[in-house]
Design a protein around this nucleic acid. Structure first.
Lengths: 227, 227
DNA sequence: ATTATAACCGAACATCTGTTCTATGTCAAG
DNA sequence: CTTGACATAGAACAGATGTTCGGTTATAAT
């Protein structure tokens, strides 16, 4: 059955992508299979599903099986639209934001007592700034000057990704267990010992037993406001 | 039946509003009645519906009857979240994003020819990171190391606010007229002359006639990705 | 004590929504 | 001509989802 309603499959797929994208932006939710089909002049939900499957296989959309209104464009899908609609600036899809918990402050000098990492304040960050969509992010604002040579200054907002292991030389938020304190340093593993290295020549490194620290997260983004 | 699960009705309504808002931002779609109820510890969808009706009567949410996943906050609902949660920074509404034109690269070393500031690529920035909502922003990615002591490194994304005048010591994108070149430097006004000062001890300042430069914009935000 | 109200529950119901199944029609290749 | 691939329709199905209904419980007021 090759009566394409006047459209080539490729064009129809793009029209479908565009409809989904626009619908989401205009309605704040995804369209249903029936709504998509109606707009494209398809008389059967299964026909619509046929094309949605193809788009999904091609990685241009994603949907949650068996749940209502979950269709959304992937990054590739957005680019597919952008590639054809050159005359309009790419408009980010609705969900292109990451809510990052803001947990307070981290001292980039001497370790100081910091409340357990808990908070309900969030900061919205565009994933494009992160280069990737990450789970397990949290944000801390820096106090102090011990990471100045790493271009992290007092008052900077730093985003961390939760992970319990970092490579030598990577910067991380470190919880020192027996001190009940958290600090931001560059980490170097030295056998049973860990060197917590400031990036500031006037400051001495701190040494701790590897068993006595907990890596809270690795630095992935630094934001500084100057105005 | 006044067992409120430890929450006053007003507080529970706010918790509900917050959950809906956060869910939409994190998942790009609205929660179901069951999801809302689960999060609030309500054991029955009808109980959840009871509160949703109230919120709807109060104009804090809107939903499309009988359709799946259509619950959303109204403007009043968003304000209700922001208005009560004084102890936490206001969370920008979903559409509060500033589309900042990304105009390419700026050289933080020797001035080099740079195309006129034009481009159609944009980067979405949360105004909360800026501290203010500004018109006339543009973004440039840094090339070079001449601003290293100002904690601006190679590859950093820098946001500028269009302005034609900066104070001594402020950092700005500067267009040098007779060279037809743009550079990022710290600016110092010295009578008829301007000193374009690198923040790198290995580099000499550049002097230009004040008439020969045009301030393109002042640095207001620096973003660095490390991962 | 009674009464009224708000809050809460669980079951049932209606419909929405996505998905599967079966069948047909068209086209191209052999 | 046959075969296979692609596109299309409609019906049916399963489960998701919102809503209604009938009831209970706790509290405050009288």
């Amino acid at each position: 059955m090759k009566n394409n309603g006047g459209q080539e499959p490729k064009e129809r797929k793009l029209a479908m992508l565009r409809f989904i994208d626009r619908y989401r932006r205009e309605h704040g939710m995804s369209p249903t299979v029936r709504e998509i089909g109606e707009h494209l002049g398809l008389l059967s939900t299964s026909h619509c599903d046929y094309y949605l499957r193809k788009l999904e296989e091609e990685g241009l959309i994603e949907r949650q099986p068996k749940r209502a209104r979950t269709i959304r464009l992937t990054e590739a899908g957005l680019q597919a639209i952008g590639g054809v609609a050159q005359e309009s600036a790419p408009v980010p899809a609705m969900d292109e934001r990451v809510a990052v918990p803001f947990l307070g402050y981290i001292v980039a000098s001497e370790p100081l007592p910091v409340e357990p990492l808990v908070g309900d304040e969030t900061i919205e960050i565009n994933p494009a700034l992160l280069g990737t969509v990450d789970d397990g992010l949290f944000a801390l604002r820096v106090r102090g000057h011990s990471m100045i040579d790493a271009l992290i200054g007092d008052g900077d907002l730093v985003l961390f990704r939760h992970q319990e292991r970092v490579e030598n030389g990577e910067m991380a938020a470190v919880w020192i267990v027996d001190r009940q304190e958290t600090t931001l340093k560059r980490i170097y593993w030295e056998g049973e010992r860990v060197r917590l290295q400031p990036a500031n020549p006037t400051m001495a490194p701190i040494y701790e037993e590897a068993d006595n620290i907990r890596i809270q997260g690795k630095v992935v983004l630094v934001v500084r406001r100057l105005d």
